[in-house]
């Protein structure tokens, strides 16, 4: 599969990555290699193989519905780059 410049633009914008020209060329090569590897995998006949949805053999890992006290708000906001009136403050976001 050919990875075009448009694909690189699109994928980096989805990932919110701001790449310079040099990085774009480097990443383009890396993505091409990954996709080529997928092409090799695609040559295998997997008609009789169940798709794997999880790597661990565990199922039904549950919690009971019992309340545990939440964290103090100061602790929660410690990692916020900016906060105000007990809330995380972020750039203006309007729907």
């Amino acid at each position: 599969m050919i990875i075009t410049d448009e694909i690189i633009e699109y994928v980096s914008s989805l990932a919110r990555l701001d790449l310079n020209a040099e990085e774009k060329i480097k990443i383009k090569g890396e993505i091409e290699k990954i996709i080529d590897y997928m092409d090799i995998l695609n040559t295998l006949d997997t008609a009789d193989v169940e798709p794997m949805s999880h790597v661990l053999p565990a199922v039904n890992v549950f919690r009971e519905d019992e309340v545990v006290p939440s964290y103090p708000r100061d602790e929660i906001l410690k990692n916020a780059p900016d906060s105000d009136e007990g809330a995380f403050r972020v750039p203006k976001t309007v729907e």
Binding site: D65, V67, S70
Partner: peptide, 26 residues
């Protein structure tokens, strides 16, 4: 339910901002 879907914080409506939170739900 009494608690959130993936952590044990309360689901109670309202409350001061960010007081029903833990590292999982944030």
């Amino acid at each position: 339910t009494k608690t959130k879907i993936f952590c044990s914080c309360t689901t109670e409506f309202g409350g001061e901002p960010n007081t029903h939170c833990c590292p999982i739900c944030t």
